[in-house]
Design a binder for these strands. Sequence first.
DNA 1: AGCTACGTGCTT
DNA 2: AAGCACGTAGCT
Length: 191
Amino acid sequence: PQRLAKAAPPEPALQMANSNFLSPLAPEHCRPLAGECMNKLKCGAAEAELMNLPERVGTFSAIPALGGLSLPPGVIVMTALHSPAAASAAVSDSAFQIANLADCPQSHPASSPASSGGAGGANPAKKKRKRCGVCVPCKRLINCGVCSSCRNRKTGHQICKFRKCEELKKKPGAALERTPVPSAEAFRWFF
DNA sequence: AGCTACGTGCTT
DNA sequence: AAGCACGTAGCT
């Protein structure tokens, strides 16, 4: 609940953060900054995420007409889903959950242990956990570029602080709490 | 082979 | 307790 209030990066360089969000996207377009799901959600989701970012709402709602933009179809769809008035995060959130659940196998716990057994079934307790894909940080596709994790990427080997999965922040024992939106409920948005 | 990012131990 | 650095699992 208080997350929104904390959305602003602790670092003073908010301006820089903004340019950091925007610049990498437009030019390189499909740049797989986020890896993993980005492969499937691709550009549409990446750009759509911009809409979802609190920092960007103002910026993008100022864009005059979507019709004139050379945006990928996905963006048009997402935008149509939540009409200008419905900027409430609820709608786009659900849309993203659909995308995540549908496109990202990682989101299905049942399939992970067996299928991902690439490691040869070594000690299961030693297995790396994967991001849940549904929490707010997971849905974020862009690195802020200013947090310590981003700045120390070379030595830190850590994901952007604002993209760090809520589940992974918890200790391995206290996991297993998800499904913020029931799938049936989620699909109602489409019809 | 190279990259991303989780787990963990060390430092502050 | 939080942050950093490193090893390395998992993926492309």
